[in-house]
């Protein structure tokens, strides 16, 4: 029971970290970046290559993966989304799906479809709490999630750049009138979201160590669900949505059915959205006076 709960929170923490990327990008650019899940996969491969082929120490592999994904996020935004700033949201959505396929197929070309065994980057003994074995990976994942949450909250509420980010998410024109570089702010958001995706990729692959070009797709969709579940655009919402989703998924697997667990996760989402269409913590769209 306790171990299920910890595993659920741990899986949920990965979803939460991914969901933060979705929700921040949505908040600023008002778009669903469906390629976000595939950045996770790239993050996984970067850590895999630097560890297995180059033999770098784990912490360097993780940092390398973060740097590559951050740059990748900025490039994706510049090349694929920025030219569409004035286009319809449908055009942007289709482009995002295109970018997603592009990344998956690029990975397929480079690394083939054979699953790679992800190296164990977190080599720590598991803990014994009241007769339950708890893996160090699970605990580190939860800790990482908490730290990220705290840092992001401080960043958006206390720093000048974070406040500017909130201003841009509300009104790009007014933000420009303040002297805020809106394009720069959007780039920064993509950079942060993609850096987080790299962390999520490493954590996910450490917990479930098979790596394939499609590795990011399902967690990406689940995390997107988590972001909507918590209220898209809301940082605490993404966190809570992610963790609840992880818990529901693990308990559904344990007590109901492994095959049905995904269906149950999405059913819960649908029920929440029927009861509260803006998600758990979603704000009403601000009314103009």
């Amino acid at each position: 029971m306790l171990s299920y709960l910890i595993n659920g929170i741990s899986l949920g923490s990965v979803y939460a970290i991914i969901a933060l990327g979705y929700t921040m990008v949505y908040g600023i650019a008002k778009m669903l970046n469906f390629a976000h899940g595939d950045v996770i996969m790239i993050g996984g491969y970067m850590a895999f290559c630097s560890s297995s082929y180059l033999g770098w120490p784990p912490i360097i592999c993780v940092l390398f993966s973060i740097v590559v994904c951050t740059v990748l996020g900025i490039i994706i935004e510049k090349l694929a989304y920025k030219p569409l700033r004035a286009a319809s949201s449908l055009a942007v959505l289709i482009t995002a799906i295109g970018v997603s396929y592009f990344l998956q197929n690029a990975a397929l070309l480079i690394w083939s479809s054979n699953p790679k065994a992800f190296p164990n980057l977190i080599n720590l003994p598991s803990l014994q709490i009241g007769g339950t074995q708890i893996s160090a990976v699970a605990l580190i994942t939860i800790a990482a999630c908490i730290v990220i949450m705290i840092v992001l909250t401080l960043f958006t509420n206390k720093t000048k750049m974070g406040k500017a980010m909130r201003a841009v998410s509300e009104d790009k024109g007014a933000a420009q009138l303040m002297g805020i570089n809106v394009n720069g702010t959007i780039s920064l958001t993509f950079a942060i979201g993609s850096g987080l995706a790299a962390i999520a990729g490493v954590l996910l692959c450490t917990a479930y160590p098979t790596l394939m070009p499609t590795t990011g797709a399902m967690p990406g969709i689940k995390a997107f669900t988590a972001a909507v579940f918590g209220g898209i655009g809301s940082i605490p919402g993404a966190m809570i949505g992610g963790i609840l989703l992880g818990i529901i998924e693990i308990f559904a697997k344990a007590y109901i059915s492994t095959q049905l667990s995904d269906a149950i996760v999405f059913a819960v989402l649908i029920i929440v959205l029927i009861v509260k269409p803006t998600g758990l913590l979603g704000k009403k769209i601000a009314e103009k006076v």
């Binding site: 406040k163 500017a164 201003a167 509300e170 009104d171 933000a175 704000k283």
Partner: peptide, 14 residues
């Protein structure tokens, strides 16, 4: 076009 979700002070800081 004030930033409705930012505080009064944060608006001024912007």
């Amino acid at each position: 076009r004030v930033f409705s979700q930012l505080s009064v002070r944060e608006n001024l800081e912007m």
